[in-house]
Design a protein around this nucleic acid. Structure first.
Length: 484
DNA sequence: TTTTGAGTTGTTCGA
DNA sequence: GTCGAACAACTCAAA
């Protein structure tokens, strides 16, 4: 029996029509179900450029979602404006009794949703926001003392235990497309998807990069990854190799369901699948942290680290952003980011360590740059990753978190295949010198046509000295605390 | 309440 | 080149 005559499903970062909590609940509770997506100007206006792969990805995914909903008798109403105002207005116009939208954990989204809920409430319309984008959220995995975990390993243990206790797939079962005795999708009163240009954006190189948006792109990438999940543990640290899943962008925009991914990894078992499942647990962990500790968006997870005296060094930041630090692995990684909007996870750690620990620049500056560039940018994961690298987050251990950019290069790109791909000007260098080109004897530099300081930058800092400065920087804060 | 064990992904040093 | 220990000692989470 349906409780409502009509309901509205508001799609945000969940651009699929299967295994979808809000869509399922709406169909369960309402006789007629409308669907809407808003190109939210409150978000779009903040983007640094009008050429943005994320917007193109969303645009393509929305087109596909609309087609899928049409095939089921419904369709997607696509709006362009302030979601905060558009959703309550639309809900009234359509005469629905409830709006369903999957729960979001970002501080700004929580404020927006609270305002929407309040406006809807004034009109007697319910706002329902079920859990969808994580396996376990907020208060589902807590310590014995009832507090949120702040250390990953015990969190993961509790997370896995909770899943296992429920028989493995209880929490991972997909929501059916059509609940028994439920309502039906109905077409929107106005059809049509605005073109990218109408939204004020220009096309990107998304297609050239082979990034396919939408549920079809997600399905293809997911199927491909399943064939190599068992090798994930062995290969994931080598950026020149196809070792990681490349599913982050699909998880970011919900073109895949986290339950489906986790269920598959859980069922498969084995080293590769277990390691990958751990990464999905990290994802839940960071969402949970952001939800419970929203101050991390701007400040350090551990407040004492807000006292760290980072350097204000615009030229250093620019060199890092543009990939001309003189450290090939760092520069190749930044080139990958700038050209494709993607960066391998190992390299995200390397460049984050380099910015904060070698250049002494605040993690917030790096986080902001990533936010503008990454196709898969997600506040929770990006912030968590940066704070981990900067040693200001959970498990802060500065003396463990200073990566040696040359050692990392030798270890994880031993033949320099990744470096040569993104820094063709270094292609002629022998492997031996590729990771630290400044060690190449000057005569050989001329012979190979790679003169340091001319054809490729000299190292912007000396790692050993930078390391000492960083340890002193942390000592000033931690040592100061000890004396109190 | 007190105690105990452990902490994603490392680096450096010296033998 | 390889290997084990030291790094510094705090905080968290469970027993």
């Amino acid at each position: 029996m349906t409780a409502y005559d009509a309901a509205l499903v508001w799609f945000r970062r969940d651009l699929r029509d299967h295994d979808h909590a809000a869509l399922y609940r709406a169909l369960q509770q309402a006789r007629r179900v409308f669907c809407v997506f808003v190109f939210d100007t409150d978000i779009l206006d903040l983007l640094p450029s009008r050429t943005d792969r994320r917007v193109e990805f969303i645009h393509g995914s929305v087109r596909e979602l609309d087609a899928a909903l049409r095939a089921r008798g419904g369709g997607l109403l696509v709006l362009h404006g302030r979601a905060e105002a558009e959703i309550p207005r639309l809900a009234r116009e359509l005469g629905v009794q409830a709006v369903f939208a999957n729960r979001d954990y970002e501080p700004a989204a929580k404020v927006r949703d609270a305002r929407v809920a309040a406006r809807l409430g004034e009109a007697g319309i319910a706002f329902v926001s079920p859990k969808d984008q994580v396996v376990f959220d907020g208060d589902e995995v807590l310590t014995q003392a009832g507090r949120p975990y702040t250390v990953f390993t015990p969190y993961r243990n509790a997370w896995l235990k909770k899943l296992a206790a429920a028989g493995g797939d209880f929490y991972l079962r997909p929501y059916p497309d059509q609940p028994a005795g439920g309502g039906a999708l109905v077409p929107p009163p106005v059809a049509g998807l605005p073109e990218l240009a109408e939204l004020g954006f220009t096309p990107t190189n998304l297609q050239e990069l082979g990034i396919r948006p939408g549920m079809s792109g997600a399905r293809a990438a997911w199927t491909e990854f399943q064939g190599r999940m068992d090798r994930y543990k062995a290969l994931r640290d080598f950026p020149a190799v196809k070792g990681v899943s490349y599913l982050s962008v699909h998880l970011r925009f919900g073109t895949l369901s986290i339950r489906e991914l986790a269920a598959t990894a859980w069922r498969q078992g084995g080293e590769g699948a277990e390691t990958w499942l751990s990464e999905l647990v990290w994802r839940d962990f960071y969402f949970m942290l952001l939800d419970h500790f929203p101050h991390v968006e701007r400040a350090c997870f551990k407040p004492e680290f807000d006292a760290l005296a980072w350097d204000d060094w615009p030229e250093g930041l620019a060199a890092w952003q543009q990939g001309r630090t003189g450290y090939p692995l760092v520069d190749a990684a930044m080139a990958q980011l700038n050209q494709t909007g993607y960066m391998h996870n190992r390299l995200r750690m390397v460049v984050a360590s380099f910015l904060t620990k070698d250049l002494g620049i605040s993690w917030q500056a790096g986080e902001r740059y990533f936010a503008g560039q990454l196709n898969d940018f997600d506040l929770a994961a990006n912030n968590g990753g940066w704070q981990w690298a900067a040693s200001t987050g959970c498990d802060a251990q500065p003396w463990f978190r200073i990566f040696n950019p040359v050692t990392q290069s030798e270890k994880f790109d031993p033949q320099g295949r990744f470096i040569r791909r993104y820094l063709p000007q270094l292609a002629a260098l022998p492997d031996k010198y590729l990771h630290a080109p400044w060690t190449l004897p000057p005569l050989l530099q001329r012979e190979l046509g790679v003169v340091i300081g001319q054809d490729y930058p000299a190292p912007i800092v000396d790692h050993a000295k930078a390391r000492e400065r960083t340890l002193a920087r942390f000592e000033a804060v931690l040592g100061g605390l000890k004396r109190v």
